[in-house]
């Protein structure tokens, strides 16, 4: 099992990119939650989550996005998901998440979508 990793970086356009990798489950969800909260506390409401190296996501991991999406949207921002592997995407897809979250093929696309007003 690969260890869960998460880090935050800020793009020149003021978009927070939170990268996640490894296994996102009940044990590691709090790490992501902390990162998200930190970004929001720093008034960063344009958030892109980079899924490129994420191998597995459990229901507890999905819960994190559900917790933050409403406050972020109320604050005029959004959480956009990007660069998912096919396997992770299928989990999101099965649950009907694409109806609520916009999912992009790559991180630059997601960042760009903010400046396009999308």
């Amino acid at each position: 099992m690969t260890e869960f990793k998460t880090s935050t970086s800020k793009s020149p356009d003021g978009v927070c990119v939170i990268s996640i990798g490894g296994y996102l489950d009940a044990h590691t969800a709090s790490d992501l939650e902390r990162n998200m909260q930190q970004a929001i506390d720093e008034n960063c409401t344009k958030i892109v989550v980079d899924f490129a190296t994420l191998e597995y996501i459990s229901s507890a991991g999905l819960g994190v996005f559900m917790v933050f999406i409403e406050p972020v949207r109320l604050a005029g921002g959004d959480i956009k998901l990007a660069a998912m592997t096919e396997k992770v995407f299928s989990v999101f897809d099965l649950l009907g998440f694409p109806a609520l979250f916009t999912i992009y093929k790559s991180v630059p696309q997601a960042i760009e979508s903010f400046s396009l007003g999308g």
Partner: peptide, 27 residues
């Protein structure tokens, strides 16, 4: 509603039944 698909076997063959739908409590 976001649930694991059903598996149906009929005379025509076995299929995975996965109509669209979002899990309850999300939307």
């Amino acid at each position: 509603a976001g649930h694991t698909p059903a598996i149906i076997r009929r005379e025509s063959g076995t299929s995975i039944c996965r109509p669209n739908g979002i899990a309850i409590g999300i939307a």
